[in-house]
Design a protein around this nucleic acid. Structure first.
Lengths: 87, 87
DNA sequence: CACGAAATATCCCTTTCGGGAAAATTATCT
DNA sequence: AGATAATTTTCCCGAAAGGGATATTTCGTG
């Protein structure tokens, strides 16, 4: 049973960023976060703010999902507002 | 394209907690976070710390996944350390 | 060796988070 | 309905950390 930890998420984000040919400052700008934040996120700092992480993931075109114990994956909500309140 | 925002994640966590018949203070204790943190998380506060959120999700027996633009879902890593660095 | 990218360091203000208890909201029982 | 019990939420305090901006240093690559 694998748990996605912050370090792994950071790594994935880094990989995706490179996949898209973006520099850190570019992705940071595109995500609306500071460069320092992105550096720390990619490094796997566990204390980064959730909302900003989602902003980055979103900017990469990725989606976050939660898999429940029963195997059901929740990818979002029909009524989910497009404007997330990250900040 | 649905993006899981913090508010939605909080709602899912709350639902799961109730599903398990746990009180907030119980889940908080089981997750190693403060009660107030869990309250804020369930309320969808976007500034909650990522690592602690993962602790809670983990305590619920849930998994976090990232779905890449190409549809590939990353649920974890073989080399992922069991000890997450949340704190 | 030189250039661009990435990682660090510092300054500094804002904010989180924990703990305990009170206050408010919700659920339950007679 | 009313009262009581249970659960959730808020408040206060202080210690600790986040993170934006910028300048500097290190690293990687052609």
């Amino acid at each position: 049973m694998l748990m996605l930890n912050v370090a792994t998420i950071g790594q994935i984000i880094r990989d995706e960023r490179k996949e898209l040919g973006l520099r850190q400052d570019e992705l940071a700008a595109a995500s609306g976060v500071g460069l320092r934040f992105l550096v720390e996120l990619e490094r796997g700092k566990p204390t980064v703010q959730m909302g900003k992480v989602l902003d980055v993931i979103s900017a990469l075109g990725c989606e976050l999902q939660i898999k429940r114990p029963d195997g059901i994956v929740i990818a979002g909500r029909a009524d989910a507002p497009k404007k997330d309140e990250a900040e």
